Simulated assay, not measured.
Amino acid sequence: MYEKSYPSKRYSETITFLEKHIGKPAHILDLGVENPFSDIMKERGYEVENTSGEDLDMNLGAVSKSSAEVVTAFEILEHMVAPFNVLKAIKTKKLVASVPLKLWFASAYRSKEDPWDRHYHEFEDWQFDWLLDKAGWEIKDRHKWTHPVKKIGLRPLLRWFTPRYYIVYAERRNS
């Protein structure tokens, strides 16, 4: 299976979900700087442009001026102080977004090396659903998956059974 060659289960689950809902070719605005998953989307036939590293809490220009058909937001909204603002500013009719779920047995992610690489939010699924609803999105499909790690201990064992990622396909509600 082609997906097995991806570096992680997260990439495999994400591209499978994206392809289920977004036909090709499609022009996608991917929130966040270019990354390995941007390349995967391009390899699979999508036309992808990324934001350029601007602070999307403060500068919504790239989002509000985009002519993309679809916006993707893969593991970026949890890094924002106010993800509502960017979700509200999106002009497209289609959104595919994923977030890491809050794990009751682990602290929120915070990089020791990079002071900007931390999670301001780690959502429960209902919180993310509510955020999207409040920003004018109707969820059409959702999916969760686990993220096992190859370590020994109680927390690594719990990661085999506890969903870590949550992805949704949503469409802009007619207001």
Rank of each mutant, 00 (worst) to 15 (best):
Y2E: 14
Y2D: 15
S5I: 13
Y6F: 15
K9F: 07
K9C: 05
E13L: 08
T14H: 05
I15S: 03
I15R: 08
I15E: 03
L18A: 11
E19F: 07
E19G: 08
E19N: 09
E19S: 09
K24I: 15
A26K: 11
A26P: 02
H27T: 00
I28G: 00
I28M: 02
D30V: 00
L31D: 04
L31V: 06
G32R: 05
G32M: 06
V33E: 14
P36N: 15
F37W: 12
R44G: 02
E47S: 00
V48E: 00
E49S: 02
E49I: 04
N50Y: 00
N50K: 02
G53V: 05
D55L: 08
D57L: 00
D57Y: 01
D57F: 00
M58E: 07
N59S: 01
L60E: 03
G61Y: 01
V63S: 01
K65I: 00
S67Q: 10
T72P: 00
E75Y: 05
E78F: 11
H79A: 09
A82F: 10
P83M: 12
V86T: 15
V86G: 13
K88I: 06
K88L: 14
A89H: 13
A89M: 12
I90V: 15
L95K: 08
V96E: 06
A97K: 08
S98H: 04
V99K: 04
A106D: 09
A106G: 06
A108C: 02
Y109L: 02
R110C: 06
S111M: 03
K112R: 09
E113A: 09
D114P: 00
P115N: 04
W116C: 03
W116D: 13
D117C: 06
D117P: 08
D117A: 08
E122Q: 11
E122I: 01
F123T: 04
E124A: 10
D125G: 08
D125T: 06
D125M: 05
Q127R: 06
Q127P: 01
D129A: 04
L132M: 13
D133V: 04
K134S: 11
G136K: 13
W137R: 12
E138C: 15
I139R: 14
I139Q: 14
R142T: 14
R142E: 15
H143V: 04
H143Q: 13
W145V: 03
H147D: 14
P148N: 10
P148A: 12
P148S: 09
V149A: 14
K151Q: 15
R155Y: 04
P156Q: 14
L157K: 15
L158N: 10
F161I: 06
T162G: 07
R164F: 11
Y165L: 10
Y165I: 02
Y165F: 15
Y166G: 00
V168C: 06
Y169R: 05
R173P: 08
N174R: 08
S175Q: 12
